[in-house]
Nucleic acid binder design. Sequence first.
DNA 1: ATTAGAATTGACAACGCTGTCAGCTTGCTG
DNA 2: CAGCAAGCTGACAGCGTTGTCAATTCTAAT
Lengths: 342, 342
Amino acid sequence: MNPERTKATIFDVARQAGVSIKTVSRVVNNEPNVRQRTREKVLRSVQELRYQPNAAARELGGKRSRVVGLIYENAQEFSYLNDLFNGALHICEPAGYTLLLRPLTLPDPEITEHIRQFALNARVEGFVLPAPLGDLPEVTALLREMKIPFAAITPRESAPDEINILCNDEAASFSLTELLIDQGHRTIGFIKGHPDHGASAKRFAGYRQALKKHSLPYSARLVRQGYFDFDSGQAAADKLLNLSEPPSAILASNDDMAAGVIFEARGRGLSVPGDLSIAGFDDTRFSSRIWPPLTTVRQPIIKMAETAAGLLIDKLNGSATKAPEAPFECEVVIRESTAFLD
Amino acid sequence: MNPERTKATIFDVARQAGVSIKTVSRVVNNEPNVRQRTREKVLRSVQELRYQPNAAARELGGKRSRVVGLIYENAQEFSYLNDLFNGALHICEPAGYTLLLRPLTLPDPEITEHIRQFALNARVEGFVLPAPLGDLPEVTALLREMKIPFAAITPRESAPDEINILCNDEAASFSLTELLIDQGHRTIGFIKGHPDHGASAKRFAGYRQALKKHSLPYSARLVRQGYFDFDSGQAAADKLLNLSEPPSAILASNDDMAAGVIFEARGRGLSVPGDLSIAGFDDTRFSSRIWPPLTTVRQPIIKMAETAAGLLIDKLNGSATKAPEAPFECEVVIRESTAFLD
DNA sequence: ATTAGAATTGACAACGCTGTCAGCTTGCTG
DNA sequence: CAGCAAGCTGACAGCGTTGTCAATTCTAAT
């Protein structure tokens, strides 16, 4: 049959189970001090009546709002956000938490005020903080001041007691660079990511390490600053390709910039990967849809978001703090934008 | 100074203004039967104390949850979702409504059950229904049965009393086809969109109308069914390009499929737009980032979402029903994937 | 002035849950 | 078998708002 027309209240369950509402409350909230038999009896009634606690009453009565906030930079690649959102939602929902999204437009001089308002108005109990928000000191400082726990998904230096989800950006960048070196490339351009993202430094470090390992000289001229957007990638490619000794491969710190590089290369009549190999980072939705399909690095965003939300909720529920997670593994995805140098 | 440490309650406002809490409630909820002078006095106290009603208490006391649900197909193009979300949020927030997102994976045989659960658990008062959800009869039927108002953003036949936001897909498709005809194309392939989307039929109709106006013959062989995804676009292009008399231009019902067409063309060594002109629909994020940049149609999604949320909230607030909006105007964006036939 | 009727205001009981604390059961110990 | 601590359970008072309805104040027509 269909679910009941009128939602059952805690009172109904209590009556059905022959206990007080307080006992039902204890069972539903998984509190101690309930005899096993009683617990089972109550649980049975909960099932039968399809009882779902009323969130508003819960919040009003207790102190818990069970709201998790996910704030993010509005300009972000949305496939990333989508994974993030789906991962977090997938954990929050069954745990009885509401996930609230809040886009932020960066740079925002009043960012702390905006976040504070959001936290207050939406009664946010904990935040999921993807890059680059977890990288902004004023944001983490605010949250600490407000005593709101958060789980940062970004390679920041982890503070004790704070939840940090990271992936091995550096190793992935190293592998990607090594791939190009193995393909015979000796002058490899690098386009750095936005300096406000912790991942940018990691990716750059991986590049340098790979050069070093293979005894290739590092040249600052082959490195340009980018900002994770298409245009800055294209502009950086323009500079790199104008060098007297242009690179035969360019590694961009994300796919948007890599797309900009491809765009610039095509505009100059260069064939990719024939004349120029190009690799990106992130495996965004379009990276397999452009021509040529992009060699890139895939992060397990969904898993990372799930873990972030899970640890955060554990913390909100007062569970024991888990040991910090090992970094998640990135995966190099080799497609057709990179090739052997002939 | 910073906002108050402890949030002010209605009681504080009442005391400050020298009225009863009920009167404050009336003012805050914009109810009638409050003398102008009293209203102003209360409003002043509200400002001074930065009073924000407690959402949980409000919901528990009254019947209103002030939650607007936005359900969407998870596979949707994200830039579209992002616009949708930002537009809706931009209206909901200042109106004191919480916007809750809920991705759905289609096809879903239990879709009504999932939506029902979401509506019940999250106490959703009204839904924003983007395509293709607004096109599914079981979804609209469920919402009608549950007596939950909704605003559909899709070209469905509008029922009386229901909110419908549409844009002139048909006219835009007509213009786009006409553009190709003006460029000298005479055999123009068309890839239909997903049959479950109301927009698909409209876009196809625009194509046929344009052919008719210019007295070009309609050939069913030049039309293939697609499903709005990259792969179906590529597959359709494969068939079309294998025709004994292949088209010199292909119009895809969205950008993902157009990207598939470009991909297929490149795979065959065809130059775009030299050998084949290609146009899409939607102006997604990557359409200007691929090579060649895509000629496409941009919909004012943000505005449409704002309007949808606005009308929905008006309805929830019991305001007078506005006259139905005129369809929103789409804009043809001409880029480099289309060119004159030489 | 007077008074019906409309406009305005306030007292008070919900709303469904959790926190507090007192009271009742157990199971053990001596 | 009394005595006591630990385990379990329930009564009851909020939480901050809105709905109801009665009380009060206006308004305007006698």
